Simulated assay, not measured.
Amino acid sequence: MMKAIVMGSMLFWGGVSMANQSLHKNRLFILSGQSNMARLNPDDTFTPTLQKAFPNDHVVVIKDAQGGQPISRWTKPSASSEGNLQSKVGDLYDRLLSTVKVSSADGHFDTVTFVWMQGESDANKRQGEQYESKLRAVIGQLKQDMQRDDLYVIVGRISDFGFKRQDKKSDWEKVRNAQVHIAETDNHATWVDTDDLNGGMDRLHYTDEGYKTLGERFAQAAITLIKKNGS
């Protein structure tokens, strides 16, 4: 039986005590990003798909997302060049890590998976050129703070929404290409497509069914990575 604790925009899904799960594996899934992650409800398809794939394991899902935010809100100051946002650089990462530490206090996780859905804000602000280095910094910082070189990473590639605007198409492509490149150059990472989730009008946000499909795609991608690596 899963339970939910809601704290502002942060959601924590836990299960039974780890003390009662010593014979099974403990699996942590960390979801973060901006509005298209904030609008995804893990209870719809993400968590159920994981529970079906790992019926005997303890699955913990944490989601901490906030709409309309650039990636600089998750990067530490050294990885950001946006001087006007220095007071907020890295603050959402700190908030996420704080929540993760609460969930990790009871014991060891056999696998940790980071699911990322963000990038529209950076593409809109024409920050595509710096996106890859910043996302690598976020992933690297999380690996370091979690002490997990074996961190699994699932990246949701932003949709084709921005292709409708010629003045933003170039940066939109740069962000998408960066997300794919990061995923395809790491044996513990992969990416999922979202181009078909925003309806016939190609909106920025996805349809209700689109979010359910996205949750299932994220879960299936994580399951494939974990099983491929024998974890």
Rank of each mutant, 00 (worst) to 15 (best):
A4D: 15
I5S: 13
M7N: 09
S9T: 14
M10R: 06
M18H: 14
A19F: 09
N20H: 13
N20Y: 13
S22F: 09
L23P: 08
K25F: 09
N26G: 07
N26T: 04
N26C: 03
Q34H: 06
Q34M: 14
Q34E: 15
S35C: 15
N36W: 05
L40M: 07
N41W: 03
N41D: 05
P42C: 09
D44I: 12
T45Q: 10
P48Q: 09
T49W: 05
Q51R: 12
Q51A: 15
K52Q: 15
K52H: 11
A53P: 12
V59Y: 06
I62G: 04
D64A: 11
Q66N: 10
Q69H: 08
I71H: 02
S72F: 00
W74G: 01
P77E: 13
S78G: 14
S80F: 03
S80D: 15
E82W: 06
E82A: 13
G83I: 12
L85Y: 13
Q86E: 14
S87C: 15
G90F: 02
D91V: 09
D94V: 03
D94S: 14
R95A: 11
L96D: 06
L96A: 06
L96R: 02
S98A: 03
T99F: 07
T99Y: 08
T99L: 07
V100Q: 00
K101T: 02
K101M: 06
S103M: 05
S103N: 11
A105N: 09
G107L: 04
D110G: 04
V112I: 10
F114D: 00
W116N: 01
M117K: 06
D122C: 02
N124V: 08
N124F: 10
K125F: 02
S133K: 11
K134V: 03
K134D: 03
R136G: 02
V138H: 02
G140W: 07
L142S: 00
K143Y: 03
Q144E: 14
M146R: 00
Q147S: 00
D149H: 01
D149L: 08
D150H: 08
D150R: 06
D150G: 02
L151T: 04
Y152M: 10
V153E: 03
I154Y: 01
I154M: 07
G156P: 10
D160S: 14
G162W: 02
G162S: 06
F163N: 09
D167F: 13
K169F: 12
D171L: 07
E173L: 09
K174P: 06
N177M: 14
Q179C: 12
V180W: 11
H181Q: 14
E184K: 14
T185V: 15
D186T: 13
N187A: 15
T190Q: 00
W191D: 00
W191E: 00
W191Q: 01
V192G: 03
T194Q: 04
T194L: 02
T194C: 07
D196E: 10
G200E: 14
G200D: 11
G200C: 06
R203V: 13
R203A: 15
R203E: 11
L204G: 06
T207F: 10
D208L: 04
D208I: 12
D208A: 11
E209H: 03
G210S: 05
T213A: 01
G215F: 01
G215D: 01
G215P: 00
E216I: 10
E216A: 12
F218V: 06
A221N: 01
I226P: 02
I226H: 02
I226G: 01
N229I: 00
N229G: 13
N229P: 06
G230R: 00
G230T: 02
S231A: 13
